[in-house]
Amino acid sequence: MVSEHKIAPLPFVANFTAGAIAGISEILTFYPLGLQVKTRMQLETGKSTTGLVGAFKTIIKEEGFGRLYRGLVPPLLLEAPKRATKFASNDFWGKTYLKMTGDDKMTQQLSILTGCSAGATESFVVVPFELVKIRLQDKLSTYAGPMDVVKKVIQKEGVLGLYSGMEATFWRHFWWNGGYFGCIFQVRGLLPKAESAKARLMNDLIAGTVGGFVVKSRIQGATKVPGVVPKYNWTYPALITIFREEGPAALYKGFVPKVLRLAPGGGVLLLVVEVTLNMFRQVLGPPYL
């Protein structure tokens, strides 16, 4: 009986680098749609919203085309460590859980658990950068730039002020990554077995696309006043407040641009990651091939 060739897992640095390259690729492609317009729509209060096309037109007409890329530096600097952390920690937790359970292959349950763990890890890297991004993207923003946001937040709220919205971000990344990686595992299993490198990449694009909250933006966009409890302070109470005051539709502000970014964005992420990892395998050679 001929033994099946077992491909060795790539080192941590390979997964980290692949995630970083994928993150930068995604942010440069989808920034105006997924971040600028979505965030602006989410920061609107009240029951009315301009909608996706209206948000684009308003920003360009009133503030110029360049405004669509306002606040690009923080997420651009963020995407490398953020996505690197996502895929590297997903790989780390996957190996850890397989070792703990004694399983040889990833299962649906383990892929979800691994994704949730990766999301929780990723959230600690994300929060300060996203707080800076959201403060800059607010229409009423008077900050001179990213470092001005950091400086003033620390002056008024201390270093921990940079972690405003941590709880909401934690839960978002926890659940989203569990669903993302769990869905990728499921879709990959349903797709026809790829017989070529091109077919495998297409499968990755499809799986990532299929795999691909207002609350976090409200919490991070609010300016804290000493001695006053913020209106949007904790995730689930904030959900109830927004629902009660603005109706259920307010919870889905920015939903369209978010989905339009997450679907192809998730596909691009996974595609670039797999292309980069394949390059590492080719360079490193056996036993990684």
Rank of each mutant, 00 (worst) to 15 (best):
V2P: 15
I7K: 09
A8H: 11
P9S: 09
P9N: 03
A14R: 00
I21G: 10
I21E: 07
I21A: 11
A22K: 05
G23A: 07
I24N: 10
S25Q: 01
T29Y: 14
F30G: 05
L33C: 11
L33T: 12
K38C: 03
Q42D: 03
E44M: 08
T45P: 10
S48M: 08
T49L: 05
T50M: 10
A55R: 04
K57M: 07
I59T: 14
E62Q: 09
E63C: 02
E63S: 13
G64E: 01
G66T: 00
R67P: 08
Y69W: 15
L76Y: 12
K82D: 13
A84T: 03
K86W: 11
N90Y: 14
W93F: 14
G94M: 00
Y97A: 03
L98N: 04
K99L: 05
M100G: 06
T101R: 12
T107M: 03
S111N: 11
S111K: 01
I112R: 04
S117Y: 00
A120E: 05
P128K: 06
L131G: 04
V132L: 06
T142K: 09
G145Q: 10
K151D: 14
Q155F: 01
G161L: 06
S164E: 09
A168C: 08
T169F: 01
F170Q: 13
F181K: 04
C183W: 01
F185D: 01
Q186S: 10
K193H: 14
A194Y: 02
E195H: 05
K198F: 08
K198G: 15
A199Q: 15
M202Y: 07
D204Q: 03
A207I: 06
G208L: 02
V210D: 11
V215Y: 01
G221W: 02
K224P: 00
G227K: 03
G227W: 02
K231Q: 11
N233W: 00
W234G: 08
W234I: 07
A238K: 01
I242T: 07
R244A: 06
E246Q: 14
G247P: 13
P248F: 08
A249Q: 13
A249P: 03
L251Y: 06
K253Q: 14
P264M: 05
L269V: 05
L269P: 08
V272P: 05
V273R: 03
V273A: 09
E274K: 05
V275G: 06
M279R: 05
M279P: 00
R281W: 09
R281P: 03
Q282M: 04
V283H: 13
V283K: 15
P286E: 13
L289R: 07
